Computed example of a mutant assay.
Amino acid sequence: MSQDYYQVREEIEDVSSFISSNDYDFPFLKEESPDFLIIHDSKLVGIEHQRLFQPPDSDGVLIQNQESLKDQIYLKAKEFYDRLDGPNMLAFVDIKDVYGKSIDKEQYKLSSKDVDEIAEQVAHIVYQKNDLSKKKIVLNGTSLKNIDDRVDGISIYNNELYQRSYFDRAKGGLIPTIENSYLQKQISKKESKIEAYYEKCEEVWLLLVVNALTFERAFDLSDSNDFLMENYESSFDSIFIFTADTRSTYKLK
Rank of each mutant, 00 (worst) to 15 (best):
Y182K: 03
T142V: 12
E67Q: 10
Y162E: 12
R164Q: 14
E117L: 11
I12N: 02
S155I: 15
Q163K: 13
L252M: 10
D114L: 12
S111N: 13
L144E: 05
L110P: 10
R164A: 13
E13D: 13
L228G: 09
D168C: 12
Q7W: 02
I147E: 04
D114G: 05
E203M: 11
E191F: 05
D220H: 09
D245W: 11
D4A: 11
I147M: 02
M1K: 04
D94Q: 07
V126G: 02
L174V: 11
K113C: 00
D25Y: 00
L228N: 11
D245E: 14
L207A: 10
G60W: 08
D94W: 14
V210Q: 05
G100V: 07
F215Q: 13
I19D: 15
H124K: 13
L29S: 05
V15M: 10
E216W: 06
P87Q: 02
I118H: 04
D168N: 14
R217H: 10
I103P: 09
L207I: 05
L221E: 03
K105Y: 08
T246W: 00
N130V: 09
S143R: 11
P87T: 01
K190N: 06
S42N: 15
Y232L: 01
L37M: 11
T249W: 04
P34V: 09
D226A: 08
L62V: 12
Y99R: 03
F26C: 07
V15P: 14
S102I: 12
M229F: 02
E230T: 09
I241Y: 02
E179K: 13
L132G: 05
D41L: 15
T142D: 08
I178N: 03
W205G: 15
D148A: 06
D152H: 07
Q7G: 08
Y166Q: 07
D131S: 11
K145V: 10
T142P: 00
L206T: 08
S111Q: 09
L37S: 15
